[in-house]
Simulated scan of single mutants.
Amino acid sequence: MSYRIKRTVIAAKRLEIGDQVNAKDIGTEAQVARLLALGAIEKAGDEAGTVTPLEMDDALRAALTNAINDLPGDAFDKSGKPKVKALQDAAPSIADRITAAARDTVWAEMQAAANAAT
C-alpha cells in the first residue's frame, strides 16, 4: 500500500506534502494507522504500490506553470525542482491543490517543452 502525504511528517526522515510513500517507508503498521487517524496521510495506491493517476485541470496546470516561472532562484531544491512550499506561497488561492505530484507533472512538461525548443 502507498500513501499520499497530506501534512509534513517527521519520522526517521522528513516526508513532504504531496509525496507518494510506501507504507514500509513511513513506519510500523501502528505508526501508519496513527497518521491516517490524524489525517496526516491518505491512501494513494493498491497493495502492489501503484499510485492513483494524477487528475489535473488546465487551470491548475496554467497556474502552476506561471508560479514556477515567477519563482526566485532560492525557491528550487538541490535537484532543481521548484519547492512545493514556495509554489503554495506563490499561489495561495490554489495552495491546497499544489502537491509534489502536481509539481512534478508540470515540471516534467516544462522541461520537455524547453528541451524540444532547443
Rank of each mutant, 00 (worst) to 15 (best):
Y3A: 00
R4D: 02
I5G: 01
I5M: 02
T8K: 13
A11Y: 07
A12C: 12
L15F: 12
L15G: 06
E16M: 11
I17W: 06
I17S: 06
I17L: 11
D19Q: 14
D19E: 15
D19I: 08
Q20A: 12
Q20W: 14
N22G: 15
A23S: 13
A23D: 09
D25L: 13
D25R: 10
I26V: 15
I26H: 06
G27R: 05
E29Q: 13
E29W: 09
E29C: 08
A30Q: 13
A30W: 08
A30C: 06
Q31L: 12
Q31F: 13
Q31P: 05
V32P: 00
A33W: 01
R34V: 12
L35K: 01
L35F: 01
L35N: 00
L35M: 04
L35D: 00
L36R: 13
L36M: 10
A37T: 04
I41G: 03
A44G: 02
G45S: 00
G45C: 03
D46N: 09
D46T: 05
D46A: 01
E47A: 14
A48E: 10
G49F: 00
T50Y: 11
T50W: 09
T50H: 11
P53W: 03
L54A: 06
L54C: 03
L54M: 03
D57M: 06
D57T: 06
D58H: 13
D58R: 15
A59V: 11
L60H: 01
R61Q: 14
A62G: 10
A62L: 11
A63G: 11
T65H: 07
T65N: 05
T65M: 06
T65I: 06
A67N: 06
I68R: 04
I68G: 02
N69M: 14
D70V: 10
L71S: 05
P72A: 15
P72R: 15
P72E: 15
P72Y: 13
G73L: 12
G73D: 14
D74A: 11
A75Q: 08
F76A: 08
F76Y: 09
F76P: 00
G80A: 07
G80D: 06
G80C: 05
K81H: 10
P82V: 01
P82E: 02
V84T: 07
V84E: 03
V84G: 04
K85G: 08
K85Y: 09
A86W: 03
A86T: 02
A86D: 03
L87S: 01
L87C: 02
L87T: 01
Q88D: 04
D89T: 12
A90P: 04
A90K: 13
A91R: 07
P92H: 09
S93W: 12
I94H: 08
I94R: 12
I98N: 00
T99D: 00
T99C: 00
T99I: 05
A100D: 13
A100T: 14
A101I: 04
A102K: 04
A102L: 07
R103M: 03
R103I: 00
T105C: 09
V106N: 00
A108C: 12
A108R: 15
E109S: 09
M110H: 04
Q111K: 15
A112C: 08
A113W: 09
A113P: 04
A113N: 10
N115P: 05
N115M: 14
A116T: 09
A116P: 01
A116R: 09
A116M: 10
A117L: 11
T118K: 15
T118I: 13
T118Y: 13
